[in-house]
């Protein structure tokens, strides 16, 4: 773990999102997409601390979490292309996909809605004694949704093995965090729930892994939930069509200097750089192969549209 594995996984996520953007531009992705470019270190660092059987719940900005949990690349592309994917058969698309086979409870396109569901997965782990933990990622803006508050207090009072990762990219869509909350860090709310809270550099997978690892260990030993606030920046718009007119001049350029992949690149000696180049090439090939495989899948059969409403 750590370099170069983290680099490979982050590069895979970045490449996936970039390829998806191109497919969107070419008209191959029907719905809107919310990308995590710049935020890759959070799912990569966090999932490094998990084992098989631990559940992960994410948001519409969840492609990185899916990939970090080992969800199949081809399935992801196909699902977003509206094809008959092995994931959700085209029913969910980019913002609502899931994969029980990889313990990926899934994305959610209702802000904050994942947290109570993740608390439920934590309840199952606790009551069955499986030893699993439930990790849920939300954005900074989601901390202002009533459901999140209710779920956090529930998890606290029930000592549930829940880890809440708040990906603080300082924006709720087009609105700055300063206009959304009166605290400097969202973890200032943690004492209000009686749970530990830590702020970490969300662009550093090691820092994320260290903090999330501590929260996971605490959850596993039965000591209850924790909040990890990972500070990060979006390199792209809120969604695919976002012109980002609300972002101050220079902000994105500055973010590009601090983003996780660039950081590793900057610190690399020539030997490592050569290794990273090789990884980039492998990742690009792997992603392209997945796109080709996804394109070969049929569109879902309309005759099946009423299947799976009920068991």
């Amino acid at each position: 773990m750590g370099l170069p594995d983290d680099y490979r996984l982050m590069a895979r996520i970045r490449r996936f999102e970039e390829r998806l953007t191109a497919l969107k531009d070419d008209g191959e992705i029907p719905g809107s997409i919310h990308l995590c470019n710049g935020q890759e270190a959070i799912p990569v660092g966090a999932c490094r601390t998990l084992r098989d059987g631990d559940h992960v719940t994410a948001t519409y900005r969840g492609h990185g979490w899916a990939l970090a949990r080992g969800v199949d690349l081809t399935g992801l592309f196909a699902e977003m292309m509206g094809r008959d994917s092995a994931l959700c058969g085209g029913r969910a698309a980019s913002p609502y996909l899931s994969d029980p086979g990889r313990w990926f409870v899934g994305e959610n396109s209702i802000v904050g809605a994942g947290v109570p569901v993740a608390a439920g997965a934590a309840l199952t782990a606790q009551r069955t004694g499986s030893g699993a933990v439930s990790l849920v990622s939300i954005g900074d803006g989601a901390m202002n949704q009533g459901n999140v508050h209710e779920a956090l207090n529930l998890a606290a009072v029930l000592d549930l093995p829940l880890v809440l990762v708040v990906e603080n990219n300082v924006y709720s869509e087009m609105s700055r965090i300063e206009d959304m909350v009166r605290v400097r860090q969202l973890t200032e709310r943690a004492p209000g729930y009686g749970v530990p809270g830590r702020v970490v550099d969300g662009n550093d997978p090691d820092a994320v892994a260290e903090a999330v690892g501590e929260a996971v260990a605490r959850a596993r030993e039965g000591s209850g939930p924790s909040i990890v606030e990972a500070m990060t920046e979006r390199l792209v718009g809120h969604y695919s069509g976002d012109a980002q007119h609300y972002r101050p001049a220079g902000e994105i350029a500055a973010a590009r200097e601090r983003e996780p992949l660039v950081r590793i690149r900057r610190a690399a000696d020539p030997a490592l750089a050569a290794q990273l180049d090789a990884i980039d090439a492998e990742v690009a090939a792997e992603v392209e192969a997945a796109v080709t495989a996804a394109r070969a899948l049929p569109f879902p059969d309309p005759a099946t549209v009423k299947e799976h409403v009920y068991v």
């Binding site: 719905g31 029913r91 698309a93 879902p300 549209v305 409403v309």
Partner: peptide
């Protein structure tokens, strides 16, 4: 629309 949640894939949406 028939009594199904809205699917995302356009081929399925067309049936709903």
């Amino acid at each position: 629309a028939p009594d199904v949640p809205m699917p995302a894939a356009p081929t399925l949406q067309a049936a709903v």
